[in-house]
């Protein structure tokens, strides 16, 4: 029984089409023009309990919009969605008790007070009795390596400590489903790693389902056996990281060893020469022409040995984020 189930999920926004400047403001006032933007288009997927799923895509791809539909913050324009068997947008208390949302760049803790005060408020809102709340705070604080920091005003904490305290506040009610939007944004490497370790431990201990977005590939590779890739509102890929790289990294690195010495110029017609010298060379070739090129090379030269490797996943998705377009990344 899936814990998150989305079927043809779609969100259209109507945005005012207004150019800057006084004239256009006036024109807009008289004659409003709107454009329909499809932020999310017919996205379908289902997530089983206990899974950690990474949600990938360039800025503006529709990740946050999807997350907000799953948490019930916005109403889908079309399609169906069920989280823990409920319709999120009704935001029934029973549903809210089972989920949580952590946003890296927004905070819920009271700025001027120790995090402990905010935790007490949350305990009261989620009907956790004080003894149980203290027990859970101690337990989570232990996992997060938080101690006295909880007694200091939040504004005096470092970014990393603050994020950990935010996580604690978000998890006090032991949600079954965690939605995390850029939970490691702006954190240094160490803090990122400890947030990751915590999430993994939490997932194991409470069998919690986690759906997270992140710009840091390290978060994804370390945590998510499964990834979903969204681009221009469409779900382009849903599967394992390896399969992702196979699909979106259409290049292979071909390492060759020849019996005779070989010159760089001799290889240039076969592919992009990364290195060449002596008996060895390495080439970058399109995946779909790999066998063909390999055959030609073996016909033309005396090839002793060869290996084929994938470029690292970080490089693939990094390129995807940088260019913001799948077509460009696939080139």
């Amino acid at each position: 029984m899936a814990v998150i189930e989305a079927k043809n999920l779609t969100k259209r926004f109507r945005v005012a089409d207004k150019k800057p400047g006084l004239w256009h403001t006036l024109k807009h006032f008289v004659n409003r023009r709107y454009r329909l933007i499809e932020a999310v288009r017919e996205v379908s997927f289902s997530i089983e309990p206990g899974e950690i799923v990474g949600f990938l895509g360039p800025n503006g791809a529709g990740k946050t919009t999807t997350l907000k539909m799953l948490t019930g913050l916005i109403h889908p324009s079309a399609g169906r969605v069920a989280v823990v068997g409920q319709t999120p947008f009704q935001r029934r208390h029973d549903f809210l008790h089972q989920i949580t949302l952590v946003m890296g760049q927004k905070q819920q803790l009271i700025w001027d007070l120790p995090a402990m005060d905010s935790l007490k408020i949350n305990a009261s809102i989620y009907r956790i009795d004080p003894v149980e709340a203290t027990r859970r705070i101690d337990e989570l604080a232990g996992m997060l390596d938080l101690g006295e920091e909880l007694q200091q005003p939040v504004r005096k904490l470092s970014l990393g400590q603050r994020m950990k305290a935010e996580l604690l506040a978000a998890l006090l009610h032991r949600p079954r489903v965690l939605f995390l939007d850029e939970p490691t944004l702006g954190l240094d490497i160490n803090a990122q790693a400890s947030v990751r370790d915590f999430l993994r431990a939490y997932n194991r201990q409470y069998k919690a389902t986690i759906l997270l977005t992140s710009h840091y590939m390290a978060d994804i590779t370390a945590l998510c056996p499964r990834v979903m890739l969204i681009h221009e509102g469409k779900l382009m890929f849903d599967g394992s990281l390896d399969a992702l790289s196979a699909r979106f990294a259409p290049y292979r690195e071909l390492n060759l060893e020849f019996r005779h010495e070989i010159a760089r110029e001799q290889l240039e017609s076969y592919g992009e020469v990364e290195s060449a010298g002596g008996h060895a060379a390495s080439l970058i070739v399109p995946r779909d022409r790999l066998t063909h090129i390999l055959d030609e090379l073996r016909n033309g030269f005396d090839v002793v040995d060869f290996t084929v490797t994938d470029p690292p996943i970080e490089q693939v998705i990094g390129r995807l984020f940088r260019t913001g377009s799948l077509e460009a990344a696939a080139l």
Binding site: K68, H93, L96, T100, K106, Q108, Y126
Partner: peptide
């Protein structure tokens, strides 16, 4: 931050 408030039971 309205999101946090809406998600509280």
């Amino acid at each position: 931050t309205m999101d946090f408030i809406l998600l509280k039971p």
